[in-house]
Amino acid sequence: MKYLKDEEFIKKFGRKLKQVREDRGLSQEQFSLLTEVSQSQIARTELGQVNTSISHVSIYAKFLKVDPRDLFDF
Rank of each mutant, 00 (worst) to 15 (best):
R44I: 00
S53P: 00
F13V: 10
K16M: 07
K5M: 12
T52R: 10
I10Q: 12
V57M: 08
K18H: 10
V37S: 14
L64G: 00
L17C: 10
Q19E: 10
F9I: 13
F63I: 08
F63R: 13
K62I: 02
Q49K: 14
K62P: 00
V20C: 02
I10Y: 08
F63V: 07
L64H: 00
L26E: 03
S58H: 10
N51Q: 13
F31A: 01
D67H: 14
L26V: 01
T45P: 06
T45A: 15
F9N: 13
G14L: 04
L33Y: 11
K2M: 10
F13M: 12
T52D: 05
M1K: 10
E29N: 11
S53F: 03
L33E: 14
K5W: 04
F13N: 07
F63S: 08
I59A: 06
V37G: 13
Q28R: 14
R24Q: 08
S32P: 00
N51H: 13
S40F: 05
V66I: 14
V20Y: 00
I54M: 15
K2W: 07
F13C: 08
T45H: 10
R15I: 07
K18T: 05
D6S: 03
L64M: 03
Y60V: 00
I42G: 04
R15C: 04
F31Q: 02
F31L: 04
E8L: 11
S38F: 06
S40Y: 06
